[in-house]
Design a protein around this nucleic acid. Structure first.
Lengths: 337, 337
DNA sequence: ACGCCCAAGTTTTACGTATAACGTCCTGCT
DNA sequence: AGCAGGACGTTATACGTAAAACTTGGGCGT
């Protein structure tokens, strides 16, 4: 037993096993082959077990100069999407003996003045999701290895990037709706300055401009049920021919669009088709179930973490986009008349 | 400039300011009054600023024997509820200079064999949410200050507990439905061995037994859309008089119940009333909007963190339950006939 | 004039770990 | 017989910080 009630240290283990502290470190660090006899190694392991020894991570981190801990910066945790990203990143991290600390940037997507303010941990690297460029600069100042998720590759200042192939998702949506015969579209866009949403707008416009006779209106709303409802309602009641399909930047917006359509007495999908993007649990709870683009959040987090591990290893991370796929459910149908 | 490209240490700052390392520590630790002149203190601060000095947390943690970091153990991050708990806990923590590391127990609610397996951080304390008793024992073995969220106070082995007043929420639901005239109930229960769900079942039974002429059937399902759908569908098609109200253990189950009701051609709330519990974003997206009990997840997390801070301070945390309130929306109405 | 205390620092130490550098047998070979 | 070298360790040191213990040079009271 160590004196007092403090946690046992490697020295306590050494004493209990009748060896030096260095031997304990070698054995428990699995570097004992050819340096310590198997019998002694066993004694040490038993003593450690007996005392309930757990290494002091602060001391180890100080000694090694690294912490095997990385920071994941995400916008506010308001959907399960980022929970999935975290889960995926944490899983891969754990497999490599790393831990992940979460930092929900208080200002949401956009500039974060003090990227690490509340993160008490000492860090080996950072994964930043959907961040604005100025926050990026603040982070880079710390010289930490950095991976950006869903961010403009051209503005990433040399940081590695991992992206979902959102552009392809938009192509799949527009292809689906055009194939059904839709020509008049409303784009319910997230009113957030973020690359991932710019891509949606740009790609959608590019897809539709190719097809003669199409029209595209854009409504903007913050990602909230109420705002989406209001914006859609306004957009659908403006004079002129009504859009037959509403393409929403994400599922939450789509839920608002559903309610707006219902308020106006429109049936989904008979009178109006609606699509989302994310494939949250919400998508299946809506009635009819939402046609949307499935994003594999966990895989996204996994890839992000793998890229960061590569950077930490001095390797160059692969730059492939993560595929996404359209899930056709009940909210889309050919336009009537 | 320090030699090489390593991060500047307090010694580098000392050299730049022409003082000893101890002086730097005193100044930056704000313990310099009466020990260092104001002019020197300024020189030190400027030097630190100039070099971009940031203290090495591993070294500080080692020296101080504490990390100002706590672990929040939650079941899988599949709903925004636990995201809210985290957000609240992290906010309070940040105000006190603490960080929060998240550990989503891989086995979900229930036994967690290796509570800290993937948590690389050195910890000052633990907040554990909805955990089973055996996992608790494993945690207690580590002698860390512990606060339990939504856990059986009688089985908490002396750990502080913070609970939502779920029992009161159940009373509000049953009062609401009984007041509307309902007498035949289906309880769609979460098929998870956790105290928070046991409370729901016990309290509901207790509420209904007081009222003559009531019947209560119970269906069980894991918390998933599909399972809830299947369980409800089975329960509603068994012979005998059909329940007029379905009380669900949480909103996600309610979403499944909605779909089951629709499949059977039942209108909500005309033919059947449905209630949830949580008040997730989902609740407002359903059509009609879900009558449910609002849980203030962020406040829950805040209270949990405050309790842990109290324990760390040697104070006794208050043992008050957090109030919840019924939100009546469109999914409940008097039974027809 | 002498001692004392205070301001303004400095020197030293400890936290617990990982590892480089250094001993000491003993075995086997020439 | 002598000696190389492997097996099995030990000793010593550094990581960066906080803080206790020590130093030094006035200024002030008596």
């Amino acid at each position: 037993m160590p004196r007092g009630s403090t946690r046992p240290t490697s020295r306590d283990v050494a004493e209990a096993a009748g060896v030096s502290q260095a031997a304990v470190s070698l054995v428990l660090g699995d570097k004992w082959r050819g340096r310590v006899s198997a019998a002694t190694a066993d004694r040490v392991r038993h003593a450690a077990q007996e005392l309930g020894y757990r290494p002091n991570l602060a001391a180890r981190n100080l000694r090694l100069g690294r912490t095997r801990t990385v920071l994941l910066v995400v916008p506010a945790l308001t959907t399960e999407f980022f929970a999935g990203v975290y889960t995926g990143a944490a899983r891969v991290a754990a497999q490599h003996g790393f831990g992940v600390v979460l930092y929900p940037s208080p200002e949401g997507i956009g500039p974060a003045r003090d990227p690490f303010g509340s993160a008490q941990a000492a860090l080996d690297g950072v994964i930043a999701s959907s961040m604005a460029a100025d926050a990026l600069t603040a982070i880079r100042g710390d010289q930490l290895p950095l991976v950006m998720l869903d961010s403009d590759p051209t503005g990433s200042q040399g940081a590695a990037t991992v992206n979902l192939d959102i552009a392809d998702g938009v192509r799949q949506i527009s292809g689906h709706l055009l194939g059904l015969g839709h020509r008049r579209f409303l784009h319910l866009a997230a009113d957030i300055p973020s690359w991932t949403f710019e891509v949606r707008a740009r790609e959608l416009a590019a897809c539709l401009v190719e097809v003669p006779g199409t029209s595209l209106h854009v409504a903007r709303a913050p990602i909230s049920f109420e705002d989406a409802l209001a914006a859609t309602q306004t957009a659908l009641t403006t004079p002129g021919p009504r859009p037959t399909a509403v393409i929403c930047d994400d599922d939450k917006l789509a839920a608002g669009a559903y309610k707006a359509a219902r308020r106006l007495g429109l049936r989904i999908p008979d009178d109006i088709s609606i699509t989302g993007l994310d494939d949250l649990a919400l998508a299946r709870a809506l009635d009819p179930e939402l046609t949307t683009v499935h994003l594999d959040a966990e895989r996204f987090g996994e890839q992000g973490m793998k890229a960061l591990l590569a950077v930490l290893d001095g390797r160059t991370p692969p730059e492939e986009d993560i595929p996404v796929h359209l899930v056709v459910r009940g909210s889309t149908a050919p336009p009537n008349a």
